[in-house]
Amino acid sequence: MKAIYERPRALKDIVTHYCPGCTHGIAHRILAEVIDELGIQGNTVGVASVGCSVFAYNYIDVDFQQAAHGRAPAVATGIKRVLPDTIVFTYQGDGDLASIGAAEILHAAARGENITVIFINNAIYGMTGGQMAPTTLEGMRTTTTPLGRQPASQGYPLRVAELLSTVEGAAYIARCSLHNAANIAKAKASLKKAFETQVQKKGFSLVEFLSSCPTNWGLSPQEALKWIEEKMIPVFPLGEFKVKEGEAR
């Protein structure tokens, strides 16, 4: 019998620590599939960030470095400059990337650093127990916005994909969602494009994934997926924001 669906080689056979209904697992799976399809498993270095995905290296079977909170793009820069022909990616949450690591991501993009960034936007700080993130929606309750996020004192959600698409050094920027099969398929296609951008040495690539956090949102897994569709997508529209055509640099 012919196997038509199996565990990607780049995904280790280990039960993850993620909560039921969390889409980190889906992001891991499509990442592993892309690594397999591009045949880069032996020549890839990942950078894990600080957040629920801090243990990404337990699941993705490539060489890994674990970075301090927010610093993954700087760490990836160091690796890529030493090993320019090795594929380097970071995997970061929204607190990690858009708050404490805002400077690092912006400048990695500005330098056109030839790395790929997987950006998990779940509108909340997962690992520390559901505090406000820079991507938390207006009015959204978190443990540090108990009355809902008030723009007057707590500001507005940050649109990272749009922001980075204005940066010259960015070669590929897209936002996708992981809330249903059709979107997951698109997300995988975008992720593959991002890695291909790197393989072709075109510069900085980032794919933002709208992701669920049922535990900290206080929703069931199904409700959480619906919440992405109804609440997040209107604020964080999907699509490709930048596709740099042309030759490698």
Partner: peptide, 9 residues
């Protein structure tokens, strides 16, 4: 942190 990445590589 770039040193971390490069040294680690």
């Amino acid at each position: 942190n770039m040193v971390y990445g490069a040294g680690g590589a």
